[in-house]
Computed example of a mutant assay.
Amino acid sequence: MTTTHLLYLHGFRSSPQSNKARIMADYVSAKHPKVRWWCPQLPPSPRDAASLIVEGIASWPRQSMSVMGSSLGGYYASWVAQLARCKSVLINPAVNPARDLEKYIGEQASWHDPEEKFFFRPEYIDELRLLDTRSMTPAAPEMVLIAQGDEVLDWTEMSARYPHALQLVQEGGDHALSNFEEYLGRVEEFLTLA
């Protein structure tokens, strides 16, 4: 099925200004101008982020929408893919953020604007648990891009979490997947962008 609507979800402390989000936005704009692109600024609360996403895609055609997500956005994207039963592309996705983000409770600075601060609250951990889809069989095809050199997340956990996915695992690399541009053709093909 052709993708006519594409949602991109950024990671923890990140924003729509992330390198991958901007690269993908530019690529879609240049090569697939008919595709509806949406990359929202996600609030720190997972519950609020989920509400924003649900509201934003409410009118989207489920049969021709897809979702992409990086890091924590990958975790959210897996949840969206179950909800909408749509294709997903996950980039170094967080597998267990309820465990990994506990040490970040407190004041945090935005990655792209260190002047911008937010508070990561203890209750957000429980909110993350409510979005966990690890026990579910994928509702639609998944592609996962994994860097073995990810300095933030364990690549073996990512690989084990997505046994049904088309896995593109690279030696080395980093959490930001700095060579993301090399994968654009594969992503475009997988999503069948309109």
Score class of each variant (00 low, 15 high):
1 M>C: 12
3 T>H: 14
5 H>Y: 07
6 L>W: 03
8 Y>C: 11
9 L>I: 02
11 G>T: 02
12 F>E: 00
13 R>W: 05
14 S>L: 01
14 S>F: 00
14 S>R: 00
15 S>Q: 07
16 P>Y: 07
16 P>V: 01
16 P>H: 06
17 Q>A: 15
19 N>H: 15
20 K>N: 08
25 A>P: 01
25 A>Q: 08
28 V>T: 06
29 S>E: 11
30 A>C: 11
31 K>L: 11
35 V>G: 07
39 C>K: 02
40 P>Y: 04
40 P>M: 05
41 Q>D: 13
43 P>T: 08
44 P>I: 03
46 P>Y: 02
50 A>C: 09
53 I>F: 02
54 V>L: 15
55 E>T: 09
59 S>N: 13
59 S>R: 15
60 W>I: 05
61 P>D: 05
65 M>C: 12
66 S>I: 02
67 V>Q: 04
68 M>S: 02
68 M>A: 05
68 M>G: 00
70 S>N: 10
70 S>H: 09
71 S>W: 01
71 S>F: 04
71 S>L: 02
76 Y>C: 05
78 S>W: 04
79 W>P: 00
79 W>C: 00
82 Q>M: 14
83 L>S: 15
85 R>K: 14
86 C>R: 06
87 K>T: 11
87 K>M: 10
89 V>F: 04
89 V>Y: 03
91 I>H: 03
91 I>V: 11
93 P>K: 04
98 A>C: 10
98 A>T: 11
99 R>H: 12
99 R>K: 13
103 K>G: 12
104 Y>V: 08
105 I>M: 09
107 E>D: 11
107 E>M: 14
108 Q>L: 08
108 Q>I: 03
112 H>E: 09
113 D>N: 13
114 P>R: 07
119 F>H: 15
119 F>M: 12
120 F>I: 01
120 F>C: 01
122 P>I: 03
122 P>Q: 04
125 I>Y: 04
126 D>M: 08
127 E>I: 09
130 L>K: 14
130 L>A: 13
130 L>Y: 12
131 L>S: 04
132 D>N: 06
132 D>F: 00
136 M>N: 14
136 M>T: 10
136 M>S: 15
137 T>V: 14
140 A>T: 01
140 A>M: 05
141 P>R: 09
142 E>H: 13
143 M>G: 02
143 M>Y: 05
146 I>S: 00
147 A>N: 11
149 G>F: 01
150 D>A: 02
152 V>F: 03
154 D>R: 08
154 D>N: 10
155 W>F: 11
155 W>P: 01
156 T>H: 13
157 E>T: 05
157 E>N: 02
160 A>C: 10
163 P>D: 06
165 A>Y: 00
168 L>G: 04
168 L>F: 10
169 V>F: 07
169 V>K: 06
171 E>P: 11
172 G>I: 00
173 G>T: 02
174 D>R: 06
175 H>F: 01
177 L>G: 02
179 N>W: 09
179 N>E: 12
181 E>F: 15
181 E>Q: 14
184 L>M: 08
185 G>Y: 12
186 R>S: 11
192 T>N: 15
192 T>K: 13
194 A>R: 14
